[in-house]
Design a protein around this nucleic acid. Structure first.
Lengths: 350, 350
DNA sequence: ATTAGCACTCAGAGAGTATGAGTGCTAAAA
DNA sequence: TTTTAGCACTCATACTCTCTGAGTGCTAAT
């Protein structure tokens, strides 16, 4: 059986109605939506066909039809019209980019927050853990006789610092020596390359100052570790409860706990080749997401790394609107990072 | 009518049973809990008295009794026994302090996360915005000809940094000059004291390099602003839904939206004089919290500043357990910060 | 002061019924 | 061959009614 133009129109009308109302759609309503060119009986026949093609489903005999995941897929691939962002929408996103990014101190993670506010769905943001990060340079700044600041900068242009206080005093000369030693011995090394042997070598070279060396190096290790670690941030989980499909706690609970707090980054889908990906219901690998859809977009954060933001919702989510907003935001983020100037001080990528 | 010893025992038994089960407590159950010294009829009489004293309530005629807020208050003040933390519990908290604090990069905010995991209730953490922060020193570190790192340190020993890239090149001498100018002109100033006039003066002094000055100063302003701003972080909101009183979404929804995301710090109670405060039901100012209880504790973050962590839950929350855990954690945090060594690099307080 | 006994209350569960939106099928009309 | 009107059928939902049992307050006896 082939998908005539009329069938497509009907399918699209059904999906768009269902996206709006979350209620099964009946033949009569569609007849009207289509424009009364045919009667509801005809629509019924068509709907029966669409069902046998696997594009529609019936919650029970005497309800209307709802789209199947396959139906949504067809819709997303072929039927869906690009949602044009209104001036207000783009303005709102731009504002979020400008304002929020200045306010929030961990841009990467907090991008998720913006997404969730923008879409009114729960959102997540992944920081893509980097491989093989190394320290490019160390700087030690004397503050008082017994305190100094460590500043380390990685090869991916991330800068981190820490204030260290010491029980004993310290001369400018010592610090200078330390600085040289660090920059000659510990730059350009990955986490694995900082071995105990290396530390022993450093111990020989440094003598008394070895205690200081190990303080600085363990800070460097912390920095490298934190950068290699991938992290998830979820936000707007409460939005889930606003949706009719999650009014019942039994439905909401498992999804919430899947998403909440210390979620495992590996559980979240990431777009591979394309900048954006839509996963509908069972297309998701994770069991907890089998009844939900996920839209993910990635954005450029410089140095060839990509950040990921995504939205989670019921399969009937408004794909057109969400994808439009998400991709606009992702583009904005890419631009922001691509320019080489991060608004926040503690996360500097090129 | 006075509160005899027996009445107190009965009240306590009722409250502790209700805390456990969330079900109205009947006279028979209490007779048993007390030890069968008296019959249920006697308990009923006592309960009637307790009710007329405003310590108990009836959801309806033929249910058992539940404690009133006044009852909880009495319990908390006089009846409650100190909950002794078990070895496992203290160990768990210590571990959270050690481990989590190293992992998480924004200790202050993330303290809330630990609380929520520790108590299984939604939790919040406030960073107490500081007054009159000033920059104590600026450091500029040359990275490449067209890039340098700004490091600023505030009078409260917080260090922040940012990498700046420039379209044009820059000499070491220029940077040196800039450094001196910044450290003579812009240190020790509060946000309000950095006026346009001051900027004009700096413009005269700096000449061509003014563009750089304004870059650095606007970064400093950002830092000062971010420190003066009080922020809330809530976590573990999903725990709310595990509680029987919030199984119905209509109850949970308003509280969730009150707590969620961009909540206003001013809405959250803070302990004033004592290190810990319990607010029971209507004792809360905020309408949305009228049916809930809040336990808040503050901890020392150095430089005379205090952080606040708190737990939100139904009025029947297990005050004994929660307060014990919260205060132990708060003490641990105070110790951690008090030592002057913060585990994370980007938030250095004394 | 305590207790046994008893009538009374009332939320919640379960059963039965009505409602109506929506379907599939058939047979006639286009 | 396609479309349509008509009709019997389905079934989730809402509603009503009744029953049950935990729990109460009161009274009279201990």
């Amino acid at each position: 059986m082939d998908l005539t133009e009329r069938k497509r129109r009907i399918l699209r009308a059904i999906i768009e109605s269902y996206i709006q109302s979350a209620e099964p759609v009946g033949s009569k309503a569609i007849a009207q939506a289509i424009g009364m060119e045919v009667s509801s009986a005809t629509i019924r026949n068509e709907m029966a066909d669409l069902e046998s093609m696997g594009l529609l489903e019936k919650p029970h005999t005497s309800a209307g039809r709802i789209p199947s995941p396959k139906g949504y897929r067809l819709y997303v691939n072929e039927l869906m019209e690009e949602h044009k962002l209104s001036l207000q929408e783009t303005e709102r996103i731009n504002q979020a980019l400008r304002l929020k990014m200045q306010e929030l101190d961990r841009v990467l993670d907090q991008a998720g927050r913006v997404v969730s506010q923008l879409t009114n769905y729960p959102a997540f943001a992944l920081s893509s853990g980097m491989d093989r990060v190394t320290i490019r340079r160390f700087d030690l700044l004397m503050v008082e006789r017994n305190a100094f600041i460590i500043v380390v900068m990685t090869d991916s242009n991330i800068v981190r610092n820490r204030l260290i206080r010491l029980p004993s005093d310290l001369t400018e000369a010592q610090l200078q020596m330390l600085n040289t030693l660090l920059n000659t011995t510990f730059t350009g090394l990955t986490l694995e390359e900082i071995t105990p042997e290396l530390m022993r070598v450093a111990q020989h070279a440094a003598g008394d100052a070895y205690g200081l060396i190990s303080l600085v190096v363990s800070f460097a290790i912390e920095v490298l570790e934190s950068l290699e670690r991938r992290t998830v941030h979820t936000s707007g989980l409460a939005h889930l409860l606003e949706l009719p499909e999650y009014r019942s706690l039994d439905r909401a609970q498992p999804l919430l706990s899947y998403l909440s707090e210390d979620a495992d980054p590996a559980r979240f889908p990431v777009p591979k080749d394309d900048p954006m990906k839509i996963l509908i219901g069972p297309e998701n690998v994770a069991d907890a997401l089998k009844d939900t859809s996920v839209v993910v977009a990635s954005y450029d954060i410089g140095d060839g790394m990509r950040g990921v933001i995504g939205v989670v919702g019921p399969t009937r989510m408004d794909y057109a609107k969400i994808t439009a907003r998400l991709s606009y935001l992702a583009e904005g983020l890419s631009r922001l990072f691509g320019q080489g100037e991060l608004p926040d001080g503690r996360n500097d990528h090129k």
